[in-house]
Every structure is written in C-alpha cells, then in structure tokens.
Design a protein around this nucleic acid. Sequence first.
DNA 1: TAATAGGTATAAGAGGTGATTATATGTCTA
DNA 2: TAGACATATAATCACCTCTTATACCTATTA
Lengths: 293, 293
Amino acid sequence: MSIRLELYRIFDKVAKCQSFSKAANELYMTQPAVSQAIMQLEHELDIRLFTRTPKGVNLTNEGKMLFEYTNSAISLLDTGEKRIKETKNLQAGELKIGVSDTISRYYLLPYLERFHNDYPNIKLKIINRTTDELCNLLKLGEIDIGICNLPITDDSLKIQKCKDIQDIFVFGEKYKYLISTVITYDELLKYPLIFLDNRSKSRQYVEDYLFSKGIKINPEIELGSHDLLLEFAKIGLGIACVVKEFSKEYLLAGTLYEINLVENIPKRNIGICSLKGVSLSPASEKFVDYLLV
Amino acid sequence: MSIRLELYRIFDKVAKCQSFSKAANELYMTQPAVSQAIMQLEHELDIRLFTRTPKGVNLTNEGKMLFEYTNSAISLLDTGEKRIKETKNLQAGELKIGVSDTISRYYLLPYLERFHNDYPNIKLKIINRTTDELCNLLKLGEIDIGICNLPITDDSLKIQKCKDIQDIFVFGEKYKYLISTVITYDELLKYPLIFLDNRSKSRQYVEDYLFSKGIKINPEIELGSHDLLLEFAKIGLGIACVVKEFSKEYLLAGTLYEINLVENIPKRNIGICSLKGVSLSPASEKFVDYLLV
DNA sequence: TAATAGGTATAAGAGGTGATTATATGTCTA
DNA sequence: TAGACATATAATCACCTCTTATACCTATTA
C-alpha cells in the first residue's frame, strides 16, 4: 500500500524542528508518537532519514532530498487550504454572471456596484446574452448564475424570482395629447410602435400576450436595446413598449409619458437562474442574497 | 486540528476519476469510505467540492481551485518517494569519499572506476585530506566515508580495516650494492633517508615505531606525496620509506629495490571510517562492500 | 564523580476512527 | 417499469495510532 501522508507531515515538521520532541509539541502529539511515525516512514521507505543525536536529530542526505519534496508539497496543501478559506470568506474567487443587457443596465448595476464595494477581491465577469443563450451557458458552466426574464421552462434550471417588472407603453412630447386618455390595445395599433427585436424575451412576452388577446402587433421600428427604445420614443418616433421600472428617469423627468391602458400587461418577473442540483459558489450565493433581499 | 492529509489524496483521486466508485477502486477502498472521506473534507473546509450527479461527480469551482494545489502536492510527494527509491537502488544520489592522496592514487582508483561503471548515476566526490582532517569532515557530515591510514583512535568513528600495507625502504641503482644485504634499523641511519612530511600518518607510524626501538630518524628529505618518494629514490637521492603495495610497478620494473631489513616494520592497515551510529547511505554501503570483498 | 536535564527508544494497553457491510435513494436507460 | 449504476446513510468492527510509563544515552553542572 502507499505511504500514509500523515507521515510526511510529521517528517516535515521534524525536519524543520530538528527534534522529535519539539516537533511533537508543535504537532500536538507526544514524542513517542513522532518517534514511531518517523520509524515507520523510514521502514516503509527502507532508508534512514534522520541521524539521532543526544541533542536532537539531523537529516541524512536522503532525508534532505526527501525534505525538498515534502516541504513544497506540504506548503502547497497549506496554501490551497488557505485559498479555499479566502474564497469562502469572499476574499478571492470570481463571479460570472450572465445577464440580458436590458437587465444589466437598469436593474443589476447597483447590486454589482454594492457587491464589488463589499467584496473587492471577487473578480466580476458579466456576460450579456439573450435568455436562451444564458441557459446554455449555465449548462456549460460558463456562468455561475443567470439573471433572466421569466418565464423560463427548463427543468434542469433552478429559478428564483427576484423582481416584478411591468411592461408599459410610453410616448414623448409629440403625443402629449394622449396624456389622461385611456387607450385600448386595439387603439395602440393606430400608432407607430417601437419594440425590441423579436429575439428578446421581453418582446416575445408582450407580443404573445397581446396575440392571446387577439391583437397582432406589427412594429414600425425594432431596436436592439432598451436605451434606444426610450430615446426613440422621446424624439417622437412612435410609442415604445418598455419596462416601467427601467424607465423611471424618463418618466420622472417628464420626457416620457406612460399610456393609460384599459388593462395593464400582466406583470412578469426577472429571475435568477442556476443549475439545479449544483451548489452555488460562495460568491454566487452571496450575490444572490443581495438580489433577493 | 489540521486536516487529515489522506483526505487530500482521496480528493485528488476522485477529482481525476470524476467518480467516487472508480476512485474507491483505484484506492483499494470501498465507495462508502470515499464518500465519507469527501464529506469529511467538505465539512472541514466547510465548502462543497463536488457536485453529485447520477453518473458521477464534478468539481465545483472551489473544488477545481483546491485540485490545482492537491494535484501538484500529491505528485510532488510521489516523485519524492520515487527519487528515494532510485537512491536506494543506486540509480541516483552522490557519494562523498574523503581519502588521503597516497591512498587515492594507488589503492582507491580501481575501485572508484569499477563503482562508477556499475552505478554511473551516482555522483562521486573525492576529497583529499590528511587523516585527521578527514575525521573532522566526517563529523561535519561533509563526507560519507573516509579511507584512512590506521590506527585511528576516535571513539565516535567506526573503523573497518580493508587492506594490509607494509612499510618498506627502497633504493635505486645508486645503492644497488645493498641488494641481498640484510640491514638493521641502526644501519639505515647511515644513508640519506627520504620520508613523507611529518603531518602524514604513514610518516608518524614508522617514525614512532622506530623510536620505540630506540631509533631516532632524521630524514634528509621530506616530501608531500608518495609519488615523489618513489621518484626521488629512483634517481638515487636516498633511501625512501614507502608502502610496498603502492610501489609494485617500480619494484617489478627493477627501477627500485627493497631493502632486506632484519625485522620488518609491522604491517599496518588502511581502514574505512564512518560515523558511529549513523547508518551509511545506500551508495556508501555499496562502495564499502566493494572495498571489503 | 554523581546528579540533573534533555534527548530518543521501547513496551504495552486503550481508545478512536476509518473501513466495511448492508441498505436506501435517486436517476437514466432499455 | 425494471435494471443498471451512481451516491448517501447507518451500524458495527477491527485495526492501528496515540498515550502512558519507562529505559537508556549523552552532555552539562555542582
């Protein structure tokens, strides 16, 4: 059988202390235990490692040789252990978050900022993709968690809702006369509509919902980012379908106005996705905490 | 307390096998043992190292991190062990021999040559010093064994006789008339004597012996090496006290002749010295074997 | 010289603990 | 739905390591 690794730890300590007794102390063992351990090691390797003297022990040449290896090995294990502990205390490590870009800008940013302040040694990696792509990245292990627009139907993923969001329609100065007018879904179609492009979950969600109400939208303009939606609406290019929570600045500033629909689009959620059955890394776990509070 | 190093070995194997069962096999343990070991490690580090799946296990991010360390550490210990075994089989290592130069040239050389042929991977270091200095080097651990002129009285040294040598007096052509003449110690003093310088054991031995017989020598010439003794005698500068075994070439070639003394100087010995109570390295041991056969 | 202090070796016994066996549980596949 | 294959859990046992006690050795010191 192979040699008990404990013996190497003891050997290592004895070599450093040049004494069985002192090593025993530092190892919280008795001297005979150390003596026996070294004898066992010497026996198994079939070679003398120490020369015993009345005032301690000295490494033989072969012992010196072995020590070069054990010393590095033991200290490697020690630092490995230490790094794990650091990671646990979030003093090191990295956190790879996949997120759709809409969310990252309007929702995630403050959390990222806070997390980075609290744990500056965690390396943050943010990957912007569509929800579907994020699910794949999760399975590939490329990201630790994904922040996605719900709903997601994937049995291998664990989903935790973390924020309600409300889809609304907004317009700028040009359509100011619509303020305090209540509008039906049908009437919306009379106006030029601005939507995200149809790969996005948000677009799909609203489009699907309206379709279930018998409304088939045909956007005048399709854009790639939520930012552009807001800006296009602001300069009067049409009525944009946006997320209320992500449009607060514009609404508060009075540069955009929300349409009063007879019936709101049902709220949907942003959720945290992770692989089912896979424990989160400490950093991921902590970050999820932030989001859920 | 610190973590059982065995756990790291098991962890390492599991990480490589990506399976508790397979690792158990390779470690000659049962699966539950491995399972428990990993759980213990995870518990002590307070972190998940593997994610369990129905078809094996996978390293978590933290597990991967730890593995980088354990993997190197374990393989370091393995190679350390391997090198020790090589040393034991004389496939590596070094052999430091201290020897007085007289001996090294005439006695040791053939043994060194043979040993080096048999074990070319052992690095040989030969150190030439006087016997007294060699004893000190032994105690300092600078040499593994010393090949010295006996007698040596030092309780901390282990002495093994390995060769008889006979001190004789020789002369060259100039004193050819002495051939087949029997000579007393007293008569020797009539001739110019050539001795080694008085730091050498050989000189001391003969001088002391003759003194015990009431003869006080007063050499005409004192030289630093046995070589020179022979050469000086050959060209007729006197009668040299040399070691018979080291002078064979000259005696056989007829360039030097041995004096017939009424009574031979008592034989003395070359011996192998090593530290008492300290086991010899495998290489040293083997070399001593060569000398003693 | 005797005694002390500090080191290692040895013997014997006890206790802990890691391995085994047996079984449960879960998941994918045929 | 059964079977194969993976890990988890529970309980028992045997080994083996550590401890205690003691011996022995070598320096140092009174």
